[in-house]
Amino acid sequence: MGQGTYVEQEYNRDMAYIADRILAEPDPAKAPGGETAVGEQEWPVEPGRYHLAVARACPWANRAIIVRRLLGLEGVISMGIAGPTHDEDSWTFDLDPGQVDPVLGIPRLKDAYEARVPGYPRGITVPAIVDIPTGAVVTNDFPQITQDLSTQWRAHHRAGAPDLWPEELREEMDAVNQRVFEDVNNGVYRCGFAGTQESYEKAYHRLFEALDWLQERLSTRRYLVGEHITEADVRLFTTLARFDAAYHGHFKCNRSKLSEMPVLWAYARDLYQTPGFGDTTDFGDIKSHYYEVHRDINPTGVVPLGPDPMVWLEPHGREELGGSPFGDGTAPGPIPEGERVPVANNPTLGLDGLVSASRA
Rank of each mutant, 00 (worst) to 15 (best):
A112G: 07
A55D: 10
L164T: 15
Y267W: 13
L354N: 02
V311G: 14
N346F: 06
R108D: 02
D328I: 01
T146C: 09
A115R: 15
V341L: 06
I65A: 10
D89I: 06
D183A: 03
W265I: 04
W213R: 11
R116G: 01
D111G: 02
R222C: 04
A19C: 09
E339V: 03
L73P: 08
E74Q: 12
T5E: 14
A331C: 07
V76M: 03
A245F: 02
I335A: 06
A57G: 15
Q41D: 02
I297T: 12
I65V: 14
D141A: 14
P102M: 05
P121Q: 13
A203R: 12
G322E: 03
A210W: 00
L354D: 00
V138R: 08
R222Q: 09
M79A: 10
S288G: 15
T125C: 08
T238S: 01
T220Q: 11
R206S: 15
Y200H: 15
D308K: 10
V343H: 05
P307Y: 00
D328P: 14
F243L: 15
P107V: 06
K110Y: 00
G350S: 12
Q197R: 14
P26D: 06
A37H: 11
W91I: 07
Q99F: 12
D285E: 13
D282Y: 01
T280Y: 05
L224Q: 06
E182D: 15
E167N: 02
W60A: 12
E25F: 05
L264P: 05
L95H: 02
D296M: 14
F208E: 00
V76I: 13
V176C: 07
W213D: 11
Y189V: 08
D308H: 07
E314G: 09
L264V: 06
R158H: 01
L258R: 06
P28M: 04
V100L: 05
D89K: 10
S288T: 15
I286E: 09
D279Q: 08
T220V: 03
D279V: 07
L214F: 03
A37Y: 04
Q99D: 12
T139A: 09
L164D: 14
R170Q: 13
G249F: 02
I77K: 01
V76G: 08
W43F: 12
L149D: 04
D163M: 05
V76C: 08
Y290S: 14
A61R: 03
G160H: 02
G187Y: 04
S288L: 13
P107N: 00
A203I: 09
A31R: 15
I145E: 05
Q152K: 08
A128K: 08
D174W: 06
D111Q: 08
E172L: 11
D282P: 15
A24W: 02
A57D: 10
T281A: 05
G119I: 13
Q152C: 07
E167F: 07
P107M: 00
M1P: 07
N185K: 01
N254M: 04
A24E: 07
V263A: 09
Y50L: 12
P133L: 00
